[in-house]
């Protein structure tokens, strides 16, 4: 089932600006859509309005063609994983996973088999008779996910489900989550502030800022063609490099250096140039000084000073030296309006 939100506006009584500012968005049937953005960008508010835990000031939420804006959470036929897990400490793992089924008055035999199936999918088979207090953080998170998938809902909502796990566990569970959700084929709306998580999980990614969607697209599209300076700087590690330049007859002038490239119809004007760290060449002619070289194993990350300021450059492992000759392949250059910081096309 697809989820459509239309012109959603929400202002919290305490805040004077809108938490979500006229957001419209469609999650297609079976799609895994990630809402990503810095804290306070409205992504959680948006998710909670879809869940029915917040009431929008205006706008509508539609699930599978049914307008659910006025319906309470329990009648929306969805399922959710919370950031704090929100599993019930007074119930055993078994009852936790089966909570939604209990509420739906599922017959005993089916209840058992569905709880068992969800538990097995998340490797919780041996822990069914324990209390949450006897589990580790990672296992509690698994209980929360098992509870969410046991009900077999049409739509699955996840609010930063991995953010309370340590780094290694997060990486492992991320892949596992992707596998499970792909297998179930449930329409999923996933909120995170972690850009790596967004890139790796989403079929599509919506980057939010100040209650608005800055860009919506596949992870690679958003990564390689950011719609604004904000998106380029937010997505990817290291973030996109930006430097100002002047366009003159098909070339870009930065200080006393010039190289080919530049947007058409922007003659003799200032432009903001963006380029990804891995796109920059290091064996050409634009001079730069290596300030820091950080080997990361597979690659080496350089911090280079040149005429345009500071650059992050990702180059092959084993790089050595203190001087580089930079090159900026014209196809990898992205241009932004310095006033609005929006991409130029």
């Amino acid at each position: 089932m697809n989820v459509t939100v239309k012109n959603l506006v929400k202002t919290y009584p305490s805040g004077n600006r809108r938490a979500t500012d006229d957001i419209s968005l469609t999650v297609e049937d079976g799609e895994f859509l990630v809402l990503v953005g810095p804290s306070g960008c409205g992504k959680t508010t948006l998710l909670r309005m879809v869940a029915g835990l917040e009431t929008p000031d205006s706008g509508t939420v539609t699930i599978g063609g049914r307008d659910v804006t006025a319906l309470p959470a329990r009648e929306r036929g969805l399922s959710m994983v919370f950031q704090s897990y929100a599993i019930f400490p007074h119930l055993k793992v078994r009852q936790n996973i089966g909570f939604g089924l209990t509420m739906r008055k599922v017959p005993r035999a089916e209840w058992d088999s569905r709880v068992r199936r969800a538990a097995e999918l998340l490797d919780l088979g041996d822990y069914l008779d324990r209390y949450p207090a006897q589990l580790s953080g990672g296992q509690r998170q698994r209980v929360a996910v098992a509870r969410a998938i046991a009900v077999d809902a049409d739509v699955l909502l996840m609010d930063e489900p991995l953010s309370n796990l340590d780094a290694l566990l997060r990486m492992q569970f991320r892949a596992e989550l992707k596998k499970i959700v792909a297998r179930l084929g449930t329409t999923t709306l996933y909120v995170t502030h972690d850009q790596a998580e967004a890139m790796s999980l989403g079929d599509r990614v919506a980057v939010l800022r100040d209650g608005r969607i800055d860009q919506l697209g596949t992870p690679m599209a958003v990564y390689s063609r950011p719609a604004s300076q904000f998106v380029g700087g937010f997505l990817g590690a290291p973030p996109m490099n930006f430097f100002p330049a002047t366009v003159s007859s098909g070339r870009l002038q930065v200080g006393d250096v010039s190289f080919p490239g530049g947007p058409s119809g922007w003659e003799d004007r200032k432009v903001l140039v963006g380029i990804r760290a891995e796109a920059i060449g290091v064996s050409a002619d634009i001079p730069g000084t290596v300030e820091v070289a950080e080997p990361t194993g597979a690659t080496t990350l350089l911090t280079v000073r040149w005429a345009g300021g500071e650059l992050k450059v990702q180059t092959a492992a084993g790089f050595e030296g203190s001087e580089v000759g930079l090159s900026f392949p014209p196809a990898a250059l992205r241009f932004f309006d310095p006033d609005t910081s929006l991409a130029l096309h």
Partner: peptide, 8 residues
């Protein structure tokens, strides 16, 4: 909230 999401 979780309880309400799951039908309570």
């Amino acid at each position: 909230e979780a309880a309400m999401i799951f039908g309570a």
